[in-house]
Write a protein that binds this DNA or RNA. Structure first.
Lengths: 182, 182
DNA sequence: ACCTGAACACCGTTCAAGT
DNA sequence: ACCTGAACACCGTTCAAGT
């Protein structure tokens, strides 16, 4: 049966989870799919485009809903994004790369801006969303890299609660962006 | 004259500024220095170590001083770090990589934690500093990547003020971390 | 001590030619 | 339409052997 774009993304996700981001190469992917490397380029423009598609897939489970107040909606969205990233090995690196090149494609990340737009001027909503995104991706990338290094024994597996540390940053940012209207 | 570690770092910085991060390879570096690739490995353990040394050099001009209140000291430090990064093409990518692997080596980044420790509990200071660092590196990396793409014509050169956007994020974070004690 | 030469095991991408 | 075969121009790293 003919190779398909979806099949390629599936295989990429599999390599990512089994061997990590460093091992995700076009040639490795071709090997896994039992085709020649060149075959991939019929379905995908280049590696960059593949990574962007991969990022979309990784974030697909996240649904930002604007229920309740912006504050708790953003808080929930941040946690959902983190969860989606942690579900796939190396995901934060993939999404960080994609985010810089094609931010408009990553809907959940745009969603943050929409949520903030409910309480801020358009410009502040945009800036605030980017601040959040940089923090989220940076924090989770660090978490995942540390997990990677700890698994290989290059780093002591930190016994601290990453989830708590993550939320501390989100809450600090939210406190600064959306001061209590009381 | 014999090759030296400092010489290698100098050449790396030169390649970075002239051709960008993507072109900074061990082989390219060797070519520039007119030695065989293997020669580099007498002076440097591997590429990772070279990048870490490069990151230290890039951030060397930054001096965090704890004068005045923590708030304005951190604000100034963030701006200084951004300036140091913007002075070298691709610097944010280099420092981001180094930061994940050996955060203790990047003194200016540790300095942020020290500054915050003046007003927060040790744990909150650590978390707060990491939040700031993730934001700073993410924001500047995006700025530099966009400049890179715009220079190549792949992206319209955004006419907005990146400095203002950067400060908005820093101030939001600081407002959340260090609420006005008034 | 410091470097060369040569190798090993890889990359991303292109493209004529086949089916 | 979809893929192979083969090439091009690269990587990071190691290591015997030379000086």
């Amino acid at each position: 049966m003919a190779l398909s774009r979806e099949q390629i993304i599936d295989a990429a996700l599999l390599i990512l989870n089994s061997y990590g981001f460093a091992d995700l190469s076009m040639r490795r992917l071709a090997r896994e799919l039992e085709v020649q490397p060149g075959a991939l380029y019929w379905h995908v423009k280049n590696k960059q485009e593949l990574l962007t598609a991969l990022a979309e897939r990784i974030l697909a489970p996240v649904a930002v809903d604007s229920g309740a107040d912006p504050r708790s909606a953003v808080r929930q969205a941040a946690q959902d994004i983190r969860a989606a990233l942690l579900a796939v090995r190396g995901a934060a690196d993939v999404v960080s790369l994609a985010q810089v090149l094609r931010p408009e494609l990553l809907l959940p990340l745009c969603g943050l801006e929409t949520l903030l737009a409910g309480a801020l001027t358009p410009q502040k909503a945009r800036w605030g969303a980017r601040t959040l995104i940089h923090y989220i991706l940076g924090a989770v990338a660090e978490e995942q890299t540390h997990a990677e290094l700890a698994a290989v024994g290059l780093l002591p597996s930190g016994g601290q609660d990453d989830g708590e540390a993550f939320l501390f940053g989100v809450d600090a940012l939210l406190a600064g962006l959306l001061p209590e209207t009381r």
